[in-house]
Design a protein around this nucleic acid. Sequence first.
DNA 1: GTATATACGACCTTTTTAGTCTGCTTTCAA
DNA 2: TTGAAAGCAGACTAAAAAGGTCGTATATAC
Lengths: 142, 142
Amino acid sequence: MLKLSKKVEYGLMALLHMDSLEPGSLVTAKEVSDQFAIPSELLGKVLQALARASLVESVHGARGGYRLKQSLDTLTLGEVVDALEGPFHLVRCHENPATCDQFESCNIREPVLQIQDRLMGYLSAFRLAEFRSKRPAVAGKR
Amino acid sequence: MLKLSKKVEYGLMALLHMDSLEPGSLVTAKEVSDQFAIPSELLGKVLQALARASLVESVHGARGGYRLKQSLDTLTLGEVVDALEGPFHLVRCHENPATCDQFESCNIREPVLQIQDRLMGYLSAFRLAEFRSKRPAVAGKR
DNA sequence: GTATATACGACCTTTTTAGTCTGCTTTCAA
DNA sequence: TTGAAAGCAGACTAAAAAGGTCGTATATAC
Ligand code: SF4
Ligand code: SF4
């Protein structure tokens, strides 16, 4: 509970890495997976999901790869989580009431919405640019 | 990811229910589990954990049960989560670095601490009293 | 045309969560 | 004094979610 999933961690690592490259340059899933010791097929799926959500851009075929589509200054943690995990719900009934045996008698459903809203607001306000503070920009090229 | 566990939900439901009873009155795990359609053995464990953490007080033996030990005005969401799930860590390396294959190459470990701190701060600041807003206090006695 | 890359979905394995069961101890009250 | 009602503890099983793998299709540079 309340732990980042590997999907999100991998996505953040990749986004941050791309940010350190020359703007516009492409990087392949394999290159990133090698550098960060991430299973390449898995990272592939993560990057594909980020591409679907237009956080990154993909180039097909040989000499293809991925590049940032938005600056980390405008990207937020909320967008990444949403792209990789789908809409954020703190309790299951907010997606599908039928899955909860306590739905009828529940006395916390409404109040929990407050918490969820504030948490979501926080995620949406957290800009990924904060991740690169004090990290030297390492020049990298393919 | 980022979902309340049933343990925490059950704990919150029970705490909120106890708050609606006459101050000092006892309630058994069975009574609460019946009222909220929670498996009684499971709720028992939850209440036992809350007792160990001194959020509630337990009375042994026949005619025993549980009662609040602190007012919801002073109890926080952070305390409940901590009692039921243990210390809050957003990423696994903060508990045990050896369990992460990406530890050596990780470029997000430090920045994630910021997020964790703010999230934890939020949980610790959220008082359970907010849960009972606008709910009528139902008199209940055993 | 072939090598290299993304894209997608099915599948398997591992880990975590949820729930169950058994047996014990404590206490009340008949 | 004894049985029922409660809390307490831990092992166990079942279900669900997360993490990881594989096969194959498709796009593109050369
Ligand atoms: S217990 Fe209440 S809050 Fe949790 S999922 Fe069920 S209805 Fe929603
Ligand atoms: S990937 Fe980085 S942040 Fe996540 S657990 Fe491993 S070391 Fe920690």
